[in-house]
Amino acid sequence: MKVIKVLGSGCANCRNTIALIEQVAQAKGVAVTLQKVEDVRDITGYGVMSTPGVVIDGKVVHAGGVPSRAKIEQLLGTA
């Protein structure tokens, strides 16, 4: 089970990111736990400056926009 955190203060792009990851995970049959991280302190604690950011198993793997479907597929496949 992968723990995926989406960093972002609740803007539209953050919600889109979460929805997209859910979709891809379901399509690929990967079990994931999605968590929202909305507190600014926690977000900056990951060293992320532009939201939305994506953290998988404690590592920042994406920041600064909604990740593309291809990128999410790759992240879920290999990480």
Partner: peptide
């Protein structure tokens, strides 16, 4: 630089830090 006002705070902190 791409900027969205929802990122203003993390960006601000990142710069100052």
């Amino acid at each position: 630089t791409p900027f969205c006002s929802c990122s203003a705070v993390p960006l601000f902190i990142g710069f100052v830090q």
